[in-house]
Write a protein that binds this DNA or RNA. Structure first.
Length: 465
DNA sequence: ATGTCC
């Protein structure tokens, strides 16, 4: 009997392989019994009819157990999600509805900067029970923000402009595959990179890329931080400060971890869930799930180290010291308690916003970023947006904007862009002020950061220096 | 967002 015949008989697709193995064993034990025989059909039919009666059978036991396990696989969920903001496209909603079908999903929310992503939309928050979804964390695992407030008078942003520009140009590296020469040092290299094969193999890449910014929406910029009132936790009085803000992640190694474990998850995805595709999950009880969890957390430390090195290099070139700081992941998964039970909360392009938790939400190269304090709103799973959110694709942006023209406009508005592409100009983003208005119940604004000197990945160069 | 992976 072949696969097709077995399935016609009622064998679930995920059990066909074991049925074939059982038939082969049966044929070996009984010389007069061929695989095509009517008897084969009868035997398979009998096991299908009462699988539990065959659990101890040396020929049919394994197949029988798989039949029962397959029937007991959890059904699709169908949970609800709340949405903040009203400028979210249908495609992002469609992805969120798919995510709400994931069998382990128990909570979901969509942030006001949401837009289309792989698997879960960017700006999507998804809580699962005892399972992790690599593509609900995202390709750039632990993509993150870091703000450092400097001990230099805010006026030096103008009076010492060249020193600031040289510090950014000398201390940062942008581009796909870009590395530091010589390699930088950080304690993260002393962590255990042998937790998975892929982290072991990517450790040297990680070292070479340590302290680099990559491409896309990543940036390093100087700007002016304004506090309307003293903030004790930040340790800053009301006033204006020179500050350094960066957006970067786990570079090549994080992408390799994501693709490795999402491929495993998708390969293991039972056929009945096939249309969930890139939302494939790994049980935290499985070896693969534990490996991903360990690798993801290492990438979290690595991304934090990248920012630490960037800030170390840039502030050291500038001759500045750091007097206060805020940082947070916005592509990550955490074990947290919500509604009385422990769940895995995936935030993919979403800022953790538990009550009292500080975070940074950037706008665009010309619009303000905000230091925020979470309000711990339960229905958002204690989350907020991670930025303004794109309202135009990179492709469309290249056809719509000429970067040099935009750059001249921005210069008149007091923002000097050292390098960037047309796909990251302010016009490709929603209005950050509207996005902040839409999430007043999620975060309170602690400070505003206005960009003054900005570096992103330049156009037409994949590995510029 | 990354890098060219049988």
């Amino acid at each position: 009997m072949n696969r097709k015949q077995l399935q016609k008989l009622g064998v679930p697709p995920d059990c066909v392989k074991l049925a074939v193995q059982a038939l082969t064993r049966a044929a070996q034990q009984d010389q007069g019994f061929g695989l095509k025989g009517k008897r084969a059909k009868e035997l398979v039919g009998a096991v299908l009819g009462e699988p539990r009666a065959y659990f101890e059978d040396s020929v049919w036991g394994e197949f029988a157990k798989e039949l029962v396990a397959d029937a007991e696989q959890p059904a699709l969920s169908n949970i609800d999600y709340r949405t903040w903001g009203d400028e979210i496209d249908d495609a992002a909603h469609a992805q969120m509805r798919q995510a709400c079908l994931v069998p382990t999903a128990v909570g979901a929310a969509l942030m006001p900067d949401a837009h289309l992503g792989y698997g879960l939309p960017i700006g999507g928050v998804l809580a699962c029970e005892n399972a992790v979804i690599p593509y609900a964390v995202g390709v750039d695992i632990a993509c993150r923000m870091k703000l450092s407030v400097l001990d230099l008078p805010v006026e030096t942003l103008d009076s010492r402009r060249n020193a600031y520009k040289e510090a950014i140009m000398g201390g940062t590296r942008f581009g796909v595959g870009v590395e530091h020469h010589p390699k930088q040092q950080h304690d993260v290299l002393d962590r255990d990179w042998d937790v998975t094969r892929i982290t072991r193999e990517k450790k040297d890449t990680a070292w070479r890329q340590l302290g680099t910014s990559g491409s896309g929406n990543h940036f390093v910029e100087f700007g002016e931080l304004t506090l309307e009132a003293r903030d004790d936790e930040l340790g800053l009085d009301a006033g204006r400060y020179a500050a350094l803000l960066s957006h970067s992640g786990s570079r090549g190694p994080g992408a390799a971890v994501c693709s490795t474990y999402s491929a495993i998850a998708q390969r293991n995805l039972p056929r009945r869930y096939a249309n969930l595709g890139r939302l494939a999950w790994l049980s935290l009880d499985s070896e693969e799930g534990q490996e991903y969890w360990a690798a993801m957390n290492l990438m979290g430390e690595y991304a934090a180290a990248n920012h630490a090195v960037i800030h170390r290099l840039v502030t050291s070139l500038l001759g500045a010291h750091v007097v206060a700081g805020v940082e947070n992941h916005h592509n990550f998964a955490w074990k947290e308690f919500h509604h009385g039970k422990e769940v895995v909360v995936h935030r993919k392009g979403a800022t953790p916003a538990a009550a009292g938790e500080l975070g940074v939400i950037p706008g665009s190269m010309a619009d303000p970023a905000f230091v925020v304090r979470g309000r711990g709103e339960p229905s958002s799973l204690c989350s907020a947006s991670h930025g303004a959110g794109r309202c135009m694709s990179r492709r469309q942006a290249k056809d719509t904007f000429r970067f040099n023209a935009v750059r001249n406009d921005l210069a008149k508005r007091g923002v000097e862009v050292l390098a960037a592409g047309a796909d990251e100009v302010p016009g490709v983003y929603k209005d950050i002020r509207r996005v902040m208005d839409a999430q007043q119940d999620l975060v309170e604004v602690v400070a505003r950061f206005d960009p003054r000197i900005v570096r992103m990945c330049g156009d037409g160069s994949k590995a510029e220096d």
